[in-house]
Amino acid sequence: MTLADLKPGQSGEIVKIQVAGALKRRLMDMGVVAGTTVRVEKVAPLGDPLEVLIKSYKLSLRKSEADKIDVEAVA
């Protein structure tokens, strides 16, 4: 399951980031690291990108990137 699979209002715990290099580094710098809980807040009106709540701030990222972040659903 990836972050892109979560619906607005659903939360997940990050398990693994399936990318390397600059993109991974950027995600890590923004707080996207394993063990962190992330909640999908909104989907943009045209269907992409997503708005997520992570480390108590709001981050937006495209589905193509969210799809590379493995999460485990949290009830």
Binding site: L23, R26, L27, M30, P49, E51, Y57, K58, L59, S60, L61, R62, E65
Partner: peptide
């Protein structure tokens, strides 16, 4: 470039 942006 990717779109990874804070919504302040």
């Amino acid at each position: 470039p990717v779109f990874i942006m804070e919504l302040p």
